[in-house]
Design a protein around this nucleic acid. Sequence first.
DNA 1: TTAAGTGCAAACGGTTTGCACCTCA
DNA 2: TGAGGTGCAAACCGTTTGCACTTAA
Lengths: 128, 128
Amino acid sequence: MMHRNGLRPSAQRIAVLSFVANCRTHPSADEIYSRLSGKFPSLSRTTVYNSLHALTDASLLRELEIESGNMRYDFKPQPAHGHFVCRKCGKIFDTPLPRSLADSLTPGFCIDCVEIVYRGLCDICNKQ
Amino acid sequence: MMHRNGLRPSAQRIAVLSFVANCRTHPSADEIYSRLSGKFPSLSRTTVYNSLHALTDASLLRELEIESGNMRYDFKPQPAHGHFVCRKCGKIFDTPLPRSLADSLTPGFCIDCVEIVYRGLCDICNKQ
DNA sequence: TTAAGTGCAAACGGTTTGCACCTCA
DNA sequence: TGAGGTGCAAACCGTTTGCACTTAA
Protein backbone atom coordinates (compact mmCIF):
# COMPACT_ATOMS: atom_id res chain seq x y z
CA MET A 1 0.00 0.00 0.00
CA MET A 2 2.82 2.41 0.85
CA HIS A 3 5.07 1.10 -1.93
CA ARG A 4 2.38 2.00 -4.42
CA ASN A 5 2.64 5.57 -3.16
CA GLY A 6 6.43 5.75 -3.26
CA LEU A 7 6.89 5.32 0.49
CA ARG A 8 9.29 2.97 2.17
CA PRO A 9 7.11 0.98 4.57
CA SER A 10 9.14 1.28 7.76
CA ALA A 11 7.87 -0.34 10.94
CA GLN A 12 7.07 3.08 12.44
CA ARG A 13 5.07 4.21 9.41
CA ILE A 14 3.13 0.96 9.31
CA ALA A 15 2.32 1.38 13.00
CA VAL A 16 1.19 5.00 12.57
CA LEU A 17 -0.97 4.21 9.55
CA SER A 18 -2.63 1.15 11.03
CA PHE A 19 -3.22 2.89 14.35
CA VAL A 20 -5.05 5.77 12.67
CA ALA A 21 -6.91 3.40 10.36
CA ASN A 22 -8.10 1.16 13.18
CA CYS A 23 -8.83 3.66 15.94
CA ARG A 24 -12.08 5.50 15.54
CA THR A 25 -11.12 8.54 17.63
CA HIS A 26 -9.33 10.62 14.98
CA PRO A 27 -6.17 10.81 17.08
CA SER A 28 -3.76 13.73 17.39
CA ALA A 29 -0.01 13.37 16.86
CA ASP A 30 0.50 13.23 20.59
CA GLU A 31 -2.10 10.51 21.12
CA ILE A 32 -0.44 8.46 18.38
CA TYR A 33 2.96 9.02 19.96
CA SER A 34 1.76 7.99 23.43
CA ARG A 35 0.03 4.85 22.24
CA LEU A 36 2.88 3.68 20.01
CA SER A 37 5.83 4.42 22.27
CA GLY A 38 4.94 1.27 24.19
CA LYS A 39 5.64 -0.79 21.07
CA PHE A 40 8.59 1.42 20.00
CA PRO A 41 10.38 2.62 23.14
CA SER A 42 12.78 4.74 21.07
CA LEU A 43 9.99 6.36 19.04
CA SER A 44 10.27 10.12 18.77
CA ARG A 45 7.64 12.75 18.17
CA THR A 46 9.65 13.82 15.12
CA THR A 47 9.16 10.40 13.54
CA VAL A 48 5.44 10.53 14.25
CA TYR A 49 5.25 13.93 12.54
CA ASN A 50 7.47 12.73 9.68
CA SER A 51 5.23 9.70 9.18
CA LEU A 52 2.02 11.71 9.38
CA HIS A 53 3.31 14.16 6.78
CA ALA A 54 4.55 11.42 4.46
CA LEU A 55 1.29 9.49 4.76
CA THR A 56 -0.74 12.65 4.22
CA ASP A 57 1.32 13.53 1.12
CA ALA A 58 0.71 9.99 -0.14
CA SER A 59 -3.06 10.50 0.31
CA LEU A 60 -3.29 7.68 2.84
CA LEU A 61 -4.21 10.07 5.65
CA ARG A 62 -6.17 13.29 5.82
CA GLU A 63 -5.57 16.18 8.22
CA LEU A 64 -8.63 17.35 10.16
CA GLU A 65 -8.51 21.00 11.27
CA ILE A 66 -11.19 20.49 13.87
CA GLU A 67 -9.44 21.74 16.98
CA SER A 68 -7.23 24.80 16.76
CA GLY A 69 -3.58 24.06 17.43
CA ASN A 70 -4.12 20.31 17.61
CA MET A 71 -4.25 18.56 14.27
CA ARG A 72 -6.19 15.32 14.07
CA TYR A 73 -5.81 12.55 11.53
CA ASP A 74 -8.25 10.47 9.57
CA PHE A 75 -7.80 7.38 7.39
CA LYS A 76 -8.41 8.73 3.91
CA PRO A 77 -9.39 5.66 1.86
CA GLN A 78 -12.68 5.60 3.81
CA PRO A 79 -15.71 6.99 2.01
CA ALA A 80 -16.14 10.75 2.45
CA HIS A 81 -17.91 11.67 5.65
CA GLY A 82 -18.49 14.58 8.03
CA HIS A 83 -17.57 14.82 11.68
CA PHE A 84 -19.54 15.43 14.82
CA VAL A 85 -17.61 16.83 17.81
CA CYS A 86 -19.30 16.38 21.19
CA ARG A 87 -18.76 19.53 23.27
CA LYS A 88 -18.97 17.51 26.50
CA CYS A 89 -16.95 14.31 26.03
CA GLY A 90 -14.86 15.62 23.12
CA LYS A 91 -15.34 12.46 21.07
CA ILE A 92 -15.42 12.81 17.32
CA PHE A 93 -18.00 10.74 15.45
CA ASP A 94 -18.18 10.05 11.73
CA THR A 95 -21.39 11.17 10.08
CA PRO A 96 -22.69 10.58 6.56
CA LEU A 97 -22.45 13.57 4.22
CA PRO A 98 -25.70 15.25 3.22
CA ARG A 99 -26.40 15.05 -0.49
CA SER A 100 -25.72 17.87 -2.94
CA LEU A 101 -23.35 19.79 -0.70
CA ALA A 102 -21.93 21.65 -3.67
CA ASP A 103 -25.29 22.88 -4.91
CA SER A 104 -25.13 26.27 -3.27
CA LEU A 105 -21.60 27.18 -4.33
CA THR A 106 -20.79 30.08 -6.62
CA PRO A 107 -20.24 28.95 -10.22
CA GLY A 108 -16.61 29.16 -11.37
CA PHE A 109 -15.24 27.79 -8.13
CA CYS A 110 -13.50 24.43 -8.20
CA ILE A 111 -14.02 22.24 -5.13
CA ASP A 112 -11.21 19.93 -3.99
CA CYS A 113 -13.01 18.75 -0.89
CA VAL A 114 -15.71 19.63 1.60
CA GLU A 115 -15.20 19.54 5.33
CA ILE A 116 -18.26 19.50 7.50
CA VAL A 117 -18.17 19.64 11.28
CA TYR A 118 -21.17 19.44 13.57
CA ARG A 119 -20.72 20.54 17.19
CA GLY A 120 -23.11 19.69 19.98
CA LEU A 121 -23.91 16.83 22.32
CA CYS A 122 -23.65 13.16 21.41
CA ASP A 123 -26.56 10.86 22.23
CA ILE A 124 -25.01 9.69 25.51
CA CYS A 125 -24.07 13.16 26.82
CA ASN A 126 -27.44 14.47 25.65
CA LYS A 127 -29.27 12.02 27.92
CA GLN A 128 -27.30 12.90 31.06
CA MET B 1 -24.36 46.44 21.64
CA MET B 2 -21.59 45.45 24.05
CA HIS B 3 -23.43 46.90 27.07
CA ARG B 4 -26.32 44.58 26.29
CA ASN B 5 -23.88 41.70 26.65
CA GLY B 6 -22.29 42.89 29.89
CA LEU B 7 -19.11 44.20 28.25
CA ARG B 8 -17.53 47.56 28.92
CA PRO B 9 -17.19 49.08 25.42
CA SER B 10 -13.56 50.20 25.54
CA ALA B 11 -12.03 51.86 22.51
CA GLN B 12 -9.91 48.78 21.81
CA ARG B 13 -12.87 46.39 21.95
CA ILE B 14 -14.95 48.61 19.68
CA ALA B 15 -12.06 48.73 17.22
CA VAL B 16 -11.61 44.93 17.24
CA LEU B 17 -15.33 44.24 16.83
CA SER B 18 -15.89 46.73 14.05
CA PHE B 19 -12.74 45.65 12.24
CA VAL B 20 -13.88 42.02 12.16
CA ALA B 21 -17.44 43.03 11.31
CA ASN B 22 -16.40 45.23 8.39
CA CYS B 23 -13.53 43.30 6.89
CA ARG B 24 -14.56 40.36 4.80
CA THR B 25 -11.32 38.38 5.14
CA HIS B 26 -12.03 36.57 8.44
CA PRO B 27 -8.87 37.97 10.02
CA SER B 28 -6.57 36.24 12.49
CA ALA B 29 -5.56 37.78 15.82
CA ASP B 30 -2.28 38.88 14.29
CA GLU B 31 -3.92 40.54 11.29
CA ILE B 32 -6.23 42.42 13.65
CA TYR B 33 -3.28 43.46 15.78
CA SER B 34 -1.27 44.69 12.79
CA ARG B 35 -4.12 46.68 11.28
CA LEU B 36 -5.18 48.30 14.56
CA SER B 37 -1.79 49.16 16.01
CA GLY B 38 -1.69 52.09 13.61
CA LYS B 39 -4.72 53.58 15.36
CA PHE B 40 -3.57 52.40 18.85
CA PRO B 41 0.24 52.60 18.96
CA SER B 42 0.28 51.11 22.46
CA LEU B 43 -2.01 48.21 21.53
CA SER B 44 -0.77 44.83 22.69
CA ARG B 45 -1.45 41.37 21.36
CA THR B 46 -2.75 40.47 24.83
CA THR B 47 -5.49 43.08 24.52
CA VAL B 48 -6.43 41.77 21.09
CA TYR B 49 -6.73 38.25 22.51
CA ASN B 50 -8.60 39.53 25.58
CA SER B 51 -11.04 41.39 23.33
CA LEU B 52 -11.52 38.45 20.99
CA HIS B 53 -12.28 36.13 23.90
CA ALA B 54 -14.66 38.59 25.55
CA LEU B 55 -16.47 39.23 22.27
CA THR B 56 -16.65 35.53 21.52
CA ASP B 57 -18.06 34.81 24.99
CA ALA B 58 -20.62 37.56 24.40
CA SER B 59 -21.65 35.83 21.13
CA LEU B 60 -20.64 38.84 19.06
CA LEU B 61 -17.84 36.93 17.34
CA ARG B 62 -17.36 33.33 16.29
CA GLU B 63 -14.07 31.42 16.17
CA LEU B 64 -13.31 29.67 12.87
CA GLU B 65 -11.03 26.63 13.15
CA ILE B 66 -10.17 26.71 9.48
CA GLU B 67 -6.40 26.87 9.60
CA SER B 68 -4.54 24.82 12.17
CA GLY B 69 -2.74 26.92 14.76
CA ASN B 70 -4.17 30.19 13.46
CA MET B 71 -7.65 31.00 14.67
CA ARG B 72 -9.77 33.22 12.49
CA TYR B 73 -12.73 35.33 13.52
CA ASP B 74 -16.15 35.93 12.05
CA PHE B 75 -18.86 38.45 12.90
CA LYS B 76 -21.55 36.25 14.45
CA PRO B 77 -24.75 38.28 14.03
CA GLN B 78 -24.52 37.56 10.30
CA PRO B 79 -26.78 34.82 8.94
CA ALA B 80 -25.25 31.34 9.13
CA HIS B 81 -22.98 30.57 6.21
CA GLY B 82 -20.23 28.22 5.09
CA HIS B 83 -16.70 29.10 4.06
CA PHE B 84 -14.69 28.48 0.95
CA VAL B 85 -10.89 28.54 1.32
CA CYS B 86 -8.95 29.04 -1.93
CA ARG B 87 -5.86 26.81 -1.88
CA LYS B 88 -4.00 29.25 -4.16
CA CYS B 89 -4.68 32.77 -2.91
CA GLY B 90 -5.75 31.74 0.61
CA LYS B 91 -8.79 34.02 0.59
CA ILE B 92 -11.81 32.88 2.54
CA PHE B 93 -15.21 33.44 0.92
CA ASP B 94 -18.62 33.22 2.54
CA THR B 95 -20.94 30.69 0.93
CA PRO B 96 -24.64 30.04 1.53
CA LEU B 97 -25.41 26.90 3.55
CA PRO B 98 -27.02 24.01 1.72
CA ARG B 99 -30.49 23.14 2.98
CA SER B 100 -31.21 20.29 5.38
CA LEU B 101 -27.67 19.86 6.61
CA ALA B 102 -28.86 18.04 9.72
CA ASP B 103 -30.88 15.46 7.82
CA SER B 104 -28.25 12.79 7.83
CA LEU B 105 -27.29 12.99 11.49
CA THR B 106 -27.81 10.18 13.96
CA PRO B 107 -31.00 10.64 16.01
CA GLY B 108 -30.33 11.51 19.67
CA PHE B 109 -27.56 13.93 18.85
CA CYS B 110 -28.09 17.61 19.63
CA ILE B 111 -26.54 20.07 17.16
CA ASP B 112 -25.25 23.41 18.43
CA CYS B 113 -23.85 24.50 15.10
CA VAL B 114 -22.61 23.26 11.76
CA GLU B 115 -19.31 24.32 10.25
CA ILE B 116 -18.78 23.71 6.60
CA VAL B 117 -15.55 24.42 4.78
CA TYR B 118 -14.97 24.00 1.06
CA ARG B 119 -11.38 23.92 -0.18
CA GLY B 120 -10.37 24.42 -3.78
CA LEU B 121 -9.79 27.22 -6.25
CA CYS B 122 -11.76 30.45 -6.35
CA ASP B 123 -13.13 31.67 -9.68
CA ILE B 124 -10.16 33.99 -10.32
CA CYS B 125 -7.44 31.44 -9.49
CA ASN B 126 -9.37 28.78 -11.40
CA LYS B 127 -9.12 30.84 -14.61
CA GLN B 128 -5.35 31.42 -14.38
C1' DT C 1 26.99 2.65 -1.00
C1' DT C 2 23.90 5.89 -0.89
C1' DA C 3 19.31 7.74 -0.67
C1' DA C 4 15.82 7.54 2.63
C1' DG C 5 14.24 7.18 7.52
C1' DT C 6 14.93 7.95 12.58
C1' DG C 7 15.38 10.66 16.62
C1' DC C 8 17.66 14.06 19.78
C1' DA C 9 17.81 18.95 20.82
C1' DA C 10 16.79 23.42 19.84
C1' DA C 11 13.98 26.78 17.59
C1' DC C 12 9.46 28.60 16.14
C1' DG C 13 5.01 30.84 16.49
C1' DG C 14 0.34 31.37 18.02
C1' DT C 15 -1.69 31.67 22.36
C1' DT C 16 -2.02 31.99 27.46
C1' DT C 17 -0.69 33.54 31.99
C1' DG C 18 1.18 36.47 35.81
C1' DC C 19 1.23 40.71 37.29
C1' DA C 20 1.51 45.73 37.76
C1' DC C 21 -0.61 49.76 36.14
C1' DC C 22 -4.50 52.35 34.48
C1' DT C 23 -9.37 53.95 34.02
C1' DC C 24 -14.00 54.50 33.99
C1' DA C 25 -18.75 53.95 36.44
C1' DT D 1 -12.56 53.68 45.03
C1' DG D 2 -12.82 49.37 43.34
C1' DA D 3 -14.03 46.14 39.63
C1' DG D 4 -12.77 45.69 35.17
C1' DG D 5 -9.43 46.68 31.17
C1' DT D 6 -4.68 47.22 29.28
C1' DG D 7 -0.17 45.71 28.14
C1' DC D 8 4.64 44.08 29.11
C1' DA D 9 7.28 39.89 29.77
C1' DA D 10 7.60 35.23 30.31
C1' DA D 11 5.68 30.73 29.93
C1' DC D 12 3.27 27.23 27.25
C1' DC D 13 2.70 23.76 23.85
C1' DG D 14 2.01 21.74 19.30
C1' DT D 15 4.89 21.68 15.54
C1' DT D 16 9.12 22.37 12.66
C1' DT D 17 14.01 22.40 11.75
C1' DG D 18 19.03 21.17 11.91
C1' DC D 19 21.83 17.63 12.05
C1' DA D 20 24.13 13.29 13.01
C1' DC D 21 23.19 8.46 13.09
C1' DT D 22 21.01 4.32 11.16
C1' DT D 23 18.95 1.25 7.78
C1' DA D 24 17.42 -1.03 3.89
C1' DA D 25 17.31 -1.40 -1.42
